[in-house]
Simulated assay, not measured.
Amino acid sequence: MNEMISSMNISIAASLLLVLALILSMFRILREYERGVVFLLGRFYKVKGPGLIILIPVVQQMVRVDLRTVVMDVPSQDVISRDNVSVRVNAVLYFRVVDPQKAIINVEDFLDATSQLAQTTLRSVLGQHELDEMLANRDMLNADIQQILDAHTDIWGIKVANVEIKHVDLNETMIRAIARQAEAERERRAKVIHALGEKEASQKLVEAAHTLSEEPNALLLRYMQTLTEVAGENTKTIVFPLPMELLTGLSKHWSQLQQVIKQQTDETNKQ
């Protein structure tokens, strides 16, 4: 008799524990950044959350989905550019789930699927550009990759917010070739700037020559100013070219002076 009572007590206790477990399994708590995709007998029922969620045991199942932005590191990819240069490129991807229903139903594992798609898209897009574009136009390439990923992941309920190319790794031979190219480019720019300076200087000299030719005395003043500047230096010997125009001007003045002296002499003799 005691054994029967003992077995009944054990059965009642087990039943109570089972009922308690079922009651506890009915309640789920979802955080503010979580949503629950609820299935009723295997069919989609609704998206619930956040807060306290009540589920019917056995009949309903729930899958949690995190709505926070995911920062995914895209592994380094071997890329051959359009000008046949082999490089290794890695990037970082920022995305988040905007539709939990699509993220759970339309794709098996949206995290892995997004990662694989990002790697493929990175190789495909960068392979269509030359090495110089990869190094100089990263913003344009980031925008192209982000647009392609966003269009493909829309059916999965995922929004790609941003894509950033982190590193473009080159081998030593290519680095030396780029350095030589940059050096040649700097020399070319230096020669062009020097030529432009010579051109502008020659134009200014022509304008100055036209200005001085309009007034002969201006050339004489400029000559005297240059002599003053040279005389201020600590030099014992000064070799300075004498313009023919200056001699012409001096000869004219000397002739005029001789005529004046002759006229005064003639007037004196007459008196």
Rank of each mutant, 00 (worst) to 15 (best):
S6C: 04
V107D: 06
E267Q: 13
D154S: 14
V85Y: 01
L141A: 06
A177D: 13
R88P: 01
V92Y: 07
D66A: 00
T121C: 08
E164P: 01
I80T: 12
L196M: 12
L16R: 12
D139P: 01
E214F: 04
F39W: 04
M62P: 00
G42F: 03
E3I: 13
Y45E: 09
N137R: 15
A208N: 02
V70S: 06
Q146G: 04
D139G: 11
K204C: 00
V65R: 05
E187G: 02
T235R: 11
L117T: 08
V192E: 15
E229K: 12
F110C: 05
K262V: 04
M174D: 12
V70I: 14
K166N: 08
H194M: 13
I5F: 11
V125Q: 08
V98H: 03
P216M: 03
Q61C: 01
V163Q: 05
E200F: 02
E187Q: 15
T153R: 04
R180C: 01
T173N: 11
L41I: 06
P57N: 02
A161P: 00
V37C: 05
R43H: 06
T237Q: 09
D154M: 10
K191A: 15
L111W: 05
M140H: 09
I145V: 14
K159N: 15
V97G: 07
F39E: 03
P243C: 03
I29G: 03
L149R: 10
L126K: 12
E229F: 02
M8I: 15
E214W: 03
V107A: 07
D266I: 13
V107Y: 06
Q128R: 15
I29D: 01
D83F: 04
I104D: 08
L227Q: 03
R222V: 00
D66W: 05
A177W: 08
E200A: 14
V38L: 13
W156F: 15
T121G: 07
Q259R: 14
Q203I: 11
V63D: 03
D266V: 14
K159V: 01
I193G: 00
A195S: 14
V70N: 09
Q146N: 10
Q264Y: 09
K102Y: 11
E130L: 01
N171R: 03
E215R: 08
V206P: 00
Q116I: 07
R189A: 12
R35V: 02
I193P: 00
